[in-house]
Simulated scan of single mutants.
Amino acid sequence: MTPVEAVVWDFDGTLASRPDMWCAAIAEAIHLCGGPPEVTAADFEETAYLHLPWHSPTLGHAFQSSSAEWWEGFLSRVQPLVAAVTGEAAMDVKRFGATVRSIILDPRRYSKIPGSTRAVDALHRRGVLQFVLSNHVPELAGIVSYLFPNRFEEVWTSGQLGVEKPRAEAFHHALDRIGRAPATVLMVGDDVRRDLEPAARLGMRTLHVEDMASTRRGDWL
């Protein structure tokens, strides 16, 4: 079997976890901005994620030129939802947006997944090139660097690329940057539709994060 020369990791649910990230961040920001204390993350579970760009992967970003524009575009769509839930249409939008952003970007709120962390360290010791490709905020590289210092060559996020997985453009970008044959590049993720199927269509090798423990280490590590 052709040896693995590079590994591309998904982030959320693969390298790190943060349950109810967006809903919890929105609720916490409401409290910090003086909104109703009875508001909880559960109030947004049915609708908040519909406002995230990667839930419409067929659409490119209209606000991809800077991280500030990404956040402005996202929060402009979330603010009406917040107003409907809290009844606080007059809430300071600028302060609320800055608060949500600071909560999401706090790397201390993410938990590394133990099995993946061990694999990342083992691959690093072997000198295998490692990258991150994620549907995430533009500033994900800072979070990854905090959690996994000096482990990844590059971090690519939909907030910068302007397209989300499973769009083929995201994977083409990764392969172009890596500069290796697809058959020598392994994609590791937790989502078959967004991570593994599109990678396989381009000839990349794939591994579901839940299968790492049961897969022979020689097959990929």
Rank of each mutant, 00 (worst) to 15 (best):
M1W: 10
M1T: 15
D10H: 10
G13R: 04
A16H: 03
R18F: 04
P19T: 12
D20R: 14
D20H: 05
A24T: 11
A27N: 07
G34P: 00
A41D: 15
D43F: 06
D43L: 06
H51N: 03
H51L: 08
P57I: 07
G60Y: 00
Q64E: 08
S66V: 12
A68M: 07
E72W: 05
F74L: 15
L75N: 11
L75G: 10
L75M: 15
S76L: 13
P80I: 07
L81Y: 09
V82Q: 08
A89K: 12
A90E: 15
M91N: 12
K94M: 08
A98E: 15
S102M: 13
L105C: 13
R109K: 13
P114E: 14
A119C: 15
D121E: 15
H124Q: 15
G127I: 11
G127S: 08
Q130P: 06
V132M: 07
H136G: 03
L140M: 10
L140I: 12
L147E: 08
F148D: 08
P149R: 10
P149H: 04
R151I: 06
E153Q: 05
W156P: 00
T157P: 01
L161N: 00
G162Y: 00
V163I: 14
K165R: 12
K165T: 14
P166Q: 12
R167H: 13
H172N: 10
H172T: 14
D176T: 10
D176Q: 11
D176K: 13
I178D: 01
I178P: 00
G179V: 11
R180I: 05
R180Y: 02
R180K: 14
A181H: 09
D190R: 14
V192A: 09
V192K: 11
V192I: 11
G203I: 05
T206Q: 00
L207P: 00
H208F: 00
V209R: 10
M212A: 14
M212N: 02
A213R: 06
T215M: 05
D219M: 02
L221N: 04
